[in-house]
């Protein structure tokens, strides 16, 4: 068993779809225009804030979606160049220096649009790098995705999206550590993972 396995928890009872996590990720990781590693989806329809049902019998739930950092990631199996790989601590990474841009990882991933492909040179609104200083530079012709802010973890910080959540709906920590906040929550709360039937073993848990 590995010493460490990072996991993220999203409390769906608390999430209000405010998009603060999405923007924190966008800023912190200096994401190019139109690239979002963490998106907010609404049940009920493809448009934002779409309730399910009909007036006045309605419900509305949000779900934030980023790379699920699977235990058995299909993207890693699919990548012909080993540009997509899993670290010891469970983080699934994308090596921009190796990536061929074949997009097999995108095709193999059972989750929709958690990866982005830089078809052209990444474009930004500002002519200088924003966000965390240590963020890897994105390249043309490569695929990018959520890294659990691995550089922040190395510095003892939380991922950008977790740190800022206004309703404290996001948690991050070591799933192998039985005393971590995430382990305790998983032991006490009901949760689900996305597309369990695919057998990918996501490291992102949704508290329900």
């Amino acid at each position: 068993m590995a010493d460490k396995r990072y996991g993220m928890l999203v409390d769906m009872q608390r999430c209000i779809g405010c998009h603060t996590c999405a923007i924190a990720c966008k800023q912190g990781n200096n994401l190019p225009n139109d690239v979002w590693w963490n998106r907010v989806l609404t049940f009920g329809g493809p448009a934002m804030d779409t309730p399910h049902g009909s007036f006045p019998n309605l419900e509305m739930k949000y779900l934030t979606l980023n790379c699920q950092h699977c235990e058995d990631p299909p993207c890693v199996a699919a990548c012909p160049a080993q540009a997509t790989y899993k670290r010891e601590d469970g983080i699934v990474m994308q090596d921009y220096e190796i990536c061929l841009g074949c997009r097999m990882c995108i095709m193999a991933c059972p989750y929709t649009q958690v990866r982005s492909y830089n078809e052209k040179n990444p474009e930004y609104y500002l002519d200088f790098q924003v966000g965390d200083a240590w963020v890897e530079k994105q390249q043309k012709g490569t695929v990018t995705k959520c890294t659990f802010c691995h550089n922040r973890l190395d510095k003892g910080l939380q991922p950008n999206c977790v740190e800022v959540c206004p309703v404290r709906a996001r948690y991050f920590g070591d799933l192998e550590d039985k005393n971590s906040e995430v382990s305790i929550l998983l032991a006490t709360r009901k949760y689900t993972r996305l597309l369990e039937n695919k057998g990918t073993g996501p490291s992102v848990f949704y508290l329900i």
């Binding site: 405010c18 998009h19 603060t20 999405a22 923007i23 924190a24 800023q27 609104y125 500002l126 206004p166």
Partner: peptide, 15 residues
């Protein structure tokens, strides 16, 4: 402790 999506977008307002 608090911040929101707008508070995290100031860089784009400044520049």
């Amino acid at each position: 402790n608090r911040v929101c999506l707008r508070g995290l977008s100031h860089v784009q307002r400044i520049y």
